[in-house]
Computed example of a mutant assay.
Amino acid sequence: MQENHLFEYAVIRVVPRVEREEFLNVGVILYCSAEKFLQVRISLDEARLKLLCARLDMDELRQYVHSFERICQGGPGAGPIGKLPPVERFRWLTATRSTIVQCSRVHPGLSPDACQMLDRLYTQLVLPEH
């Protein structure tokens, strides 16, 4: 039997007009110390996003999302934040902010496989129901 590991995750949301507090879930970021795992899964459904806000600048949004991916990967291409240890990058990415891309509160859980859990959370929380 595989051992369960503590993980933390947050849902990544696009909030086109912060004052309206309307958002669309577009991704999930998951950190697991025991597995040395920090990854993000993001999907920008442009049709759904345009329904939420017709004036949304998709090029700008793609840049924000790409920065989440780069920072998760770490290294010199991710700027100064990318040089931090994974836990600090996770905390920085999930910090409260009032921009177009925001994260939910951080939630804990237990799983024997962080990658499979990330896929499951992404499917449950981001992908539209059929």
Rank of each mutant, 00 (worst) to 15 (best):
R91W: 07
E60D: 08
I81D: 04
Q63F: 00
R105M: 14
G75D: 03
A95Q: 15
P86L: 08
L56N: 01
A78V: 09
I42A: 03
P86I: 03
D59E: 12
F90Q: 01
G77D: 13
W92A: 14
F68Y: 15
G82A: 09
L93E: 09
L61R: 04
V101H: 05
V101Y: 04
G109Q: 01
F68G: 03
H66F: 07
R70F: 00
R48C: 03
V101Q: 10
T96I: 09
Q73H: 08
I100T: 14
P86K: 09
G109A: 05
E69V: 15
H107D: 05
A95S: 15
S98C: 07
H66D: 14
H107I: 12
V101L: 10
F90N: 03
P85Y: 03
C103Y: 04
G74Q: 07
Q63K: 15
K83G: 14
E88D: 14
V65D: 03
V101F: 04
S104Q: 02
G75V: 04
K83H: 06
V87G: 01
L51R: 14
Y64L: 10
G74R: 09
E88C: 04
V65E: 01
K83V: 00
S98P: 00
G77T: 13
H66N: 15
S67I: 09
F90V: 07
L93Y: 05
G79M: 08
E88S: 13
A78L: 05
G77I: 08
F90T: 00
Q102V: 14
G75I: 06
L56S: 01
R91S: 12
Q73I: 02
D45L: 01
D59S: 10
S98Q: 07
A78P: 07
G79S: 04
G77F: 01
P108E: 06
T99R: 14
H107R: 01
H66E: 15
V106A: 03
K50T: 12
C72E: 04
S104F: 04
T94D: 08
L52F: 05
R89W: 07
Q102Y: 02
C103V: 06
E46D: 02
R48M: 11
V106K: 10
I71H: 08
D57E: 02
L61P: 11
S98K: 06
W92P: 02
G109R: 04
E60S: 14
R70Q: 14
P80A: 13
G74D: 09
S67H: 09
L56A: 04
S43L: 13
G82Y: 00
G75L: 04
E69A: 12
D59A: 09
E88F: 08
M58R: 02
K83A: 11
I100V: 15
L84M: 14
L51F: 00
A54E: 11
E46H: 11
T94K: 08
E69M: 07
R89H: 02
R89M: 06
R89G: 05
A47T: 13
R105A: 15
E46C: 00
I71T: 13
H107W: 00
L44H: 02
Q63N: 12
G79E: 10
V101R: 07
A78G: 06
E46T: 11
A54Y: 09
H107V: 13
V87E: 13
R41A: 15
A47K: 11
A78H: 05
L51Q: 12
I81A: 12
I42S: 02
E69L: 10
R105K: 13
